[in-house]
Design a protein around this nucleic acid. Sequence first.
DNA 1: ATAATATCGATAACAAAGTATCGATATGTC
DNA 2: GACATATCGATACTTTGTTATCGATATTAT
Lengths: 210, 210
Amino acid sequence: MEGISKESLQRLPTYLRYLNELHLNGIESVSSTTIADRFKLNPVTVRKDLAFISEDGGKPKTGFSVADLVAEISEFLGYNNTQDAVLVGVGKLGSALLGYKGFSNYGLNIVASFDCKTDIQIDSTKREINNISMLPDLVKRLGVNIGIITVPAESAQAVCDLMINSGIKAIWNFSPTHLITPDNIAIKNEDMAASLAVLSQRLTAILKNE
Amino acid sequence: MEGISKESLQRLPTYLRYLNELHLNGIESVSSTTIADRFKLNPVTVRKDLAFISEDGGKPKTGFSVADLVAEISEFLGYNNTQDAVLVGVGKLGSALLGYKGFSNYGLNIVASFDCKTDIQIDSTKREINNISMLPDLVKRLGVNIGIITVPAESAQAVCDLMINSGIKAIWNFSPTHLITPDNIAIKNEDMAASLAVLSQRLTAILKNE
DNA sequence: ATAATATCGATAACAAAGTATCGATATGTC
DNA sequence: GACATATCGATACTTTGTTATCGATATTAT
């Protein structure tokens, strides 16, 4: 069987949130049509997505078992075995990510944070901030695979290189740069400018039509 | 001519950043191959992207004029005529976005911020935070088109509805929910869970190969 | 001048993702 | 029990995006 498509993969967490809601409300089954309506998708798209991760599939007339889907998507996305991560750059955005409780639901656990200035105070969570020089040792010692970069653009590539040299295998980059990485490293550039470009183009189209 | 593809559109800001660098370094022309190498793309992809926005196109042997491309991409992305936006939810993430200087480069100007608790203090920037009840009037008065949502998931849909009723036409949603919006509203859900799903799937693939 | 080469744009082939169609099958109604 | 219906999965088709190919053209070197 082929791997799941990138697009499908990105829809799964969305489905899961919705299915969890249904589950909480005691709803036991759901059809692809219902899910599709919720997210303005084509029912066939939803069925194909679910076909990848669902063991038993859906039943005619009734649809899919909500409980089964919740279990299967969670498992598929790896939400059951948590991955450790380190974060570098405890500015505003970094603090925001550190303070975000939701990551635990997504199987992500930020075990340590780093900065070059170590005198920063995180008000609420009061986690310790380590000096960046401590990163390689800690990453090696704990076998951390994921690095989150929330430093300014100027220092992002240097941090990235340091992470890779320390054994990090996946990098989630929130700085406004496209990092250069070897092929055996997973990288996700979270590009605000790209998102904004899509949004404002749609806005322009809408304004033109009115 | 057809509109630009979503994928191309998202690559343009990346190109622009790179081209600005080249420009600063006094480099006057660049080939599609060079750009492609920088971002691990196919040169043909780059040429097609640039064909959409470039008036004169590139010259054989030398490539494209850096200065021309910078001007044309900036113009195409609307970076020259700034759009006003309002932000609702001045928690950590909201403050981070409010404090981010880079948006001005992307033609985005956050003119006001709102929260239900109005006693929050933003340390550095010291902008005023308005009560959410002031939003409709301000949006109508200034004719603001863009709304940024950085509230918790529970209140996101309510904020969204309020924005739309006030005349907002484009919504940039950072809360972990997929908002329901009518078709004449531009919406961009910034879904961390989806990004993370892509990253960790690639990580898994890499770990498997080693 | 001539030749070699890097690059372009255009066209065509290919790949990936989304959508439509259709027969099969549970469920509920008459 | 027969019939209508919502839904499924499979297959085929369409659209969108990427990659390969190729002739044309500036630039540089001989």
